[in-house]
């Protein structure tokens, strides 16, 4: 019992971070059908922003996470404007290649900057660390609690924006049918920019939470994390916001449990689960199968 609960805690803590990052993938894919390869690197940028905010400005946790959401979000809007928008009516995959190009740039350019460089840096403790022992014997720590609370709050906020606000309604409309939405007077370019903004803000927050849990950052940290989150998005049904949340949680928990059972192959477990789910539910857990009309 202690074991199971303990593993569950580890899994959920990892899963909520995957979910935050997966949301950005799923929103961008839902709206312009682009696998945004540079998304993982925005996670890294978020982590670095928080690092510098804390080290240079002495920022506390709320300020650091705010900046870490704001700056990648603006960067993401700029990237969309410069590298993706000109290609929107071009073959779908050319935007994918610019995304890869942007990703290579984001990974390598900071490495050449003298104040960032290739080093692994310790990430500062933004909140005090404390262990709490639960009645069952499992241990829960303060960082895990903050992770889960912040992630859940952000996801609730996002769900509110998507379902209860005008912008959210416009986002859903654009993702459903761009041309029709534009005919209804929706500024499609602006809505797509908003989507990139929101997705990157969540990625930045994910970057901070991830770096607090595993307190080390470097310029390549986004690659693998991004891939995992992307897989989580697909698992939940790419294009679906609740799907990304569920997918992230499942990925996190499965990975931790599989690693505990057989660590030699644990890290590949996410992929195996993905293949199994896609075989039975091709559109992912909460994805809708699009019916094609002629």
């Amino acid at each position: 019992m202690r074991e199971t609960l303990q593993l569950l805690i580890y899994g959920v803590q990892l899963g909520v971070i995957y979910a935050l990052i997966a949301l950005g993938y799923t929103m961008v894919y839902g709206i312009i059908n682009l696998i945004n390869f540079a998304h993982g690197d925005l996670v890294m940028i978020g982590a670095f922003v928080a690092y510098f905010a804390a080290e240079l400005l002495g920022a506390n946790f709320p300020l650091a996470i705010f900046l870490a959401m704001l700056i990648p979000a603006c960067l993401s809007v700029a990237i969309e404007r410069l590298a993706y928008r000109p290609l929107r009516d071009k073959p779908r995959l050319s935007a994918l290649i610019t995304a890869i190009g942007v990703s290579i740039f984001l990974e390598n350019f900071p490495r050449m900057l003298p104040f960032i460089g290739p080093n692994y840096r310790p990430f500062p403790m933004l909140i005090p660390f404390k262990n709490f022992t639960l009645p069952t014997g499992a241990v829960l720590n303060s960082i895990q609690i903050v992770n889960i609370l912040v992630s859940v709050a952000l996801m609730v906020a996002l769900t509110y924006i998507v379902h209860r606000t005008k912008v959210g309604r416009a986002m859903r409309a654009v993702s459903f049918n761009k041309d029709a939405a534009s005919l209804m007077g929706i500024n499609v370019n602006r809505i797509i920019a908003v989507t990139f903004f929101l997705g990157a803000a969540l990625a930045g927050a994910g970057g901070v939470l991830y770096s607090m849990t595993y307190p080390m950052i470097d310029v390549l940290m986004g690659i693998w994390l991004g891939t995992k989150a992307f897989i989580a998005a697909v698992l939940g049904g790419i294009g679906s916001v609740p799907g990304a949340m569920l997918g992230g949680l499942i990925m996190g928990i499965c990975e931790v449990v599989a690693t505990a059972l057989y660590s030699e192959l644990g890290y590949g477990s996410g992929f195996v689960i993905l293949i199994l789910i896609l075989l039975f539910r091709p559109a992912g857990l909460l994805g809708k199968v699009k019916i094609e009309k002629v």
Binding site: M216, M221, W224, T259, A260, G266, Y267, G268
Partner: peptide
């Protein structure tokens, strides 16, 4: 004897849990 899959892995909690036990 616990393993992990590469330098990009940052989460060792599951393995450490087994080691603790």
């Amino acid at each position: 004897l616990e393993a992990y899959g590469g330098s990009d892995i940052r989460d060792f909690n599951a393995q450490l849990n087994n080691i603790k036990a």
